[in-house]
Design a protein around this nucleic acid. Structure first.
Lengths: 98, 98
DNA sequence: TTAACTTGTCCTGTATTGGGCAAATATACA
DNA sequence: TGTATATTTGCCCAATACAGGACAAGTTAA
């Protein structure tokens, strides 16, 4: 999800992986892997990528986090149920805070 | 969430941590930590616990997975949004399968 | 006071990250 | 068509993080 987004953004900006790689000071293989979900995107690059692509860091971070959640539950048949339970927990913790 | 459940179940069965610990062949400190969410519950114990407490392994597994999800998103202000995005991804992947 | 539970610290082993490098593929284009 | 450029893929590796506990000491509850 973050990978696809990054690819979309890069293409919409007409940038080459080579250019993005230079910006992040990594090689193109790593960029390719990020965009294809072969490697997790390192959190530390989110701000640079957001700046480069002109989107908010929050947007990228949300997708980054969604990827992490997805990794946890993918292929599990109780995935949706588990997420629902976790969601309720989040909500109830938030209420406590107030 | 799994921790609380395990504690509930144990108490409803009138078992001591010592007894459960013996069953799993670990010491009571570890049991205590599982029940208090100080340590993740090892997946490999779920079946034994389910048997011991007379509940389905699936039920415990769902809570176990919910814990994992919760760990990923807790304290993040985009938690709910991220989960929602991940949920959509799960659903769309499932549709693909058919 | 004793048994039950919790907490802090420590340790070992395994898994995961964050990459690089080289080779293989795909794409564009003259 | 050939060839250069872009991208992907496979394999590798070091560093770090995390799991799965043990143990001892501290607390709590009967």
């Amino acid at each position: 999800m973050l990978g696809e987004k990054l690819k979309e953004l890069r293409e919409s900006k007409r940038l080459l992986q080579r250019q993005v790689a230079a910006e992040l000071k990594v090689n193109t293989a790593y960029i390719s892997k990020m965009e294809n979900n072969d490697k997790p995107v390192s959190k530390s690059y989110l701000s640079k990528l957001a700046l480069l692509y002109g989107v908010s860091e929050k947007e990228l971070y949300t997708l980054w986090l969604a990827d992490k959640v997805y990794d946890v539950v993918k292929d599990q048949d109780v995935a949706l149920k588990a997420m629902e339970v976790a969601e309720e927990e989040i909500k109830s913790k938030r209420k406590e805070k107030n």
